[in-house]
């Protein structure tokens, strides 16, 4: 049975009509229409679906969409700096931290949450902070460099 409710995603209020057992990643991708949030496992194991809920990083595949009512949901589409790339986005590209790009949105959301919580993290803190985001392409070295550079620049 579908039910009607509202979600606040990237500062926009969306009317939703969906079954109450739908997870947030699937509602974001199909009802809200934002496909930047990726699904690599649907099982809380890869981090590709990471979004922020009231600033906290959450694997949206394992979070009920209806539970996000009344909270601020931020996806990768919501972190652009006006028309410009967010420093994390730009630094990931300049450092070469993006290959296939499938882990990238989740990685950006986790890094954003980390840097908000801890603006000057140590290397170890970054490694642990992003250890829930799997990347099969890069070996992580350039992602680490991009996050370090973003922290150093701000």
């Amino acid at each position: 049975m579908n039910e009607a409710y509202e979600l606040d995603v990237n500062g926009v209020r969306y009317p939703i009509n969906a079954a109450m057992d739908r997870n947030l990643s699937s509602v974001l991708r199909t009802e809200v229409g934002l496909t930047g949030t990726k699904e690599g496992c649907d099982d809380c194991e890869c981090g590709a679906c990471m979004v922020l809920i009231d600033g906290q990083p959450v694997n949206s595949c394992s979070y009920l969409a209806a539970q996000a009512q009344g909270r601020e949901v931020t996806t990768v589409e919501g972190i652009l700096d006006g028309d410009n790339l967010h420093p994390l986005q730009r630094n990931l590209l300049e450092e070469g931290g993006v290959q296939c790009g499938f882990c990238t949105p989740g990685m950006i959301m986790s890094a954003q949450a980390l840097l908000t919580r801890n603006p000057s993290p140590t290397e170890e803190e970054i490694r642990i902070g992003l250890s829930g985001n799997l990347c099969r392409c890069t070996g992580y070295q350039r992602i680490l460099a991009a996050v370090e550079r973003t922290a150093a620049e701000s």
Partner: peptide, 14 residues
């Protein structure tokens, strides 16, 4: 990379 902006903004379609 030319496909980079697509990939970091989430606008790229898989």
């Amino acid at each position: 990379r030319a496909d980079g902006p697509d990939k970091v903004t989430g606008s790229g379609r898989y």
